[in-house]
């Protein structure tokens, strides 16, 4: 092995003493030490710092995606009786178990949930670390925050108003609206290819029933599961439509399924659920609500 060249330490300990002496002069005479005296001084935190969660009640739709994605199961949905918004469901956080990974804010489809820069969260009682939705409520926080996720103006469909006139499909310059017949109903439903949509809003302008409206949609990087209807099992009870947080499920009548009543009169036709996938946030609550195994989500078990 070749003899290696070691750096010369001629001064024995004088070199490091020179460095520390300089530092001593710097901290004692020409300046101050580097320490941040914590309770008096605090670090400047960047906007994206992940501290305590903050929830915008008005934007939140109560879908529970944050609850599902949380790796530590530290969030839950709680029923809240709000004077303004009525009876709603909003998430609460157990700060004591939170990882502060920020996945809940990232997955939120309406960017109602944010991570604020508050980090002094210690408490003397463990119970007080369980923050209810009211504790994390701050409706004004979103306006102070420069949202990093890009938003697009996209047409959303209110299927109850739609008559299936096909005017929107003819008007779209990108040809991204296709009228698809809905099984066993006599209705056509416009299906909008959101990937191709360029937000011209011509379909909205032309819609005679005002069934299409432009709304802000935030881009999501998570591929969410899409529910799939097994039509034979569907009893038309409407539980899924009531549970859906984003009103993406509509109950449509199926003509020709009317039962003949005693008097020879025909009763009401059976209903079926119809999904408007553009509005679906993938929370899976319809799947949980369905008692007849009529909705399944591929790859997800109940």
């Amino acid at each position: 092995m070749a003899e290696r060249k070691l750096p010369k330490s001629t001064g024995i300990v004088l070199k490091p003493m020179k460095r520390t002496g300089k530092q001593l002069l710097r901290t004692l005479i020409f300046g101050k030490p580097n320490t941040v005296l914590y309770p008096e001084q605090k670090l400047d935190l960047p906007q994206i710092y992940r501290g305590k969660q903050v929830l915008d009640f008005k934007k939140c739709i109560g879908c529970g995606n944050c609850v599902t994605v949380c790796p530590n199961d530290c969030m839950w949905l709680e029923k809240v009786d709000d004077p303004e918004l009525g009876k709603i469901e909003r998430p609460g956080v157990d700060i004591g178990r939170c990882l502060f990974c920020g996945l809940c804010a990232e997955v939120c489809p309406t960017v109602a949930l944010h991570m604020s820069t508050a980090y002094e969260l210690a408490n003397s009682e463990r119970g007080k670390l369980r923050l209810s939705p009211m504790d994390i409520r701050d409706d004004a926080f979103g306006s102070t925050f420069v949202e990093e996720r890009q938003k697009r103006m996209l047409p959303t469909l209110d299927l109850s108003k739609c008559t299936g006139c096909e005017k929107c499909a003819g008007e779209c310059p990108e040809m991204c609206i296709a009228m698809m017949p809905v099984d066993r109903t006599d209705r056509n439903k416009p299906e909008i290819n959101l990937a191709k949509c360029k937000s011209h809003a011509k379909c909205v302008a032309v819609c005679p029933e005002k069934a299409l409206t432009m709304t802000e949609v935030y881009e999501s990087y998570f591929e969410m599961p899409e529910p799939k209807l097994i039509l034979d099992n569907c009893s038309g009870c409407g539980a899924c439509a009531r549970k859906c947080p984003s009103n993406a499920i509509y109950m449509l009548e199926m003509p020709g399924t009317e039962k003949t009543l005693k008097g020879g009169k025909k009763g009401k036709p059976k209903k079926r659920a119809v999904f408007v996938f553009e509005k679906c946030v993938g929370c899976g609550r319809c799947y949980q609500a369905c008692k007849f195994d009529a909705i399944e989500i591929p790859g997800v078990e109940k």
């Binding site: 520390t20 030490p33 580097n34 005296l37």
Partner: peptide, 13 residues
């Protein structure tokens, strides 16, 4: 105090 100042912190304060 000197240890603090040499090591770049405040020491007793």
């Amino acid at each position: 105090k000197l240890s603090g100042r040499i090591l770049d912190f405040y020491g007793p304060y």
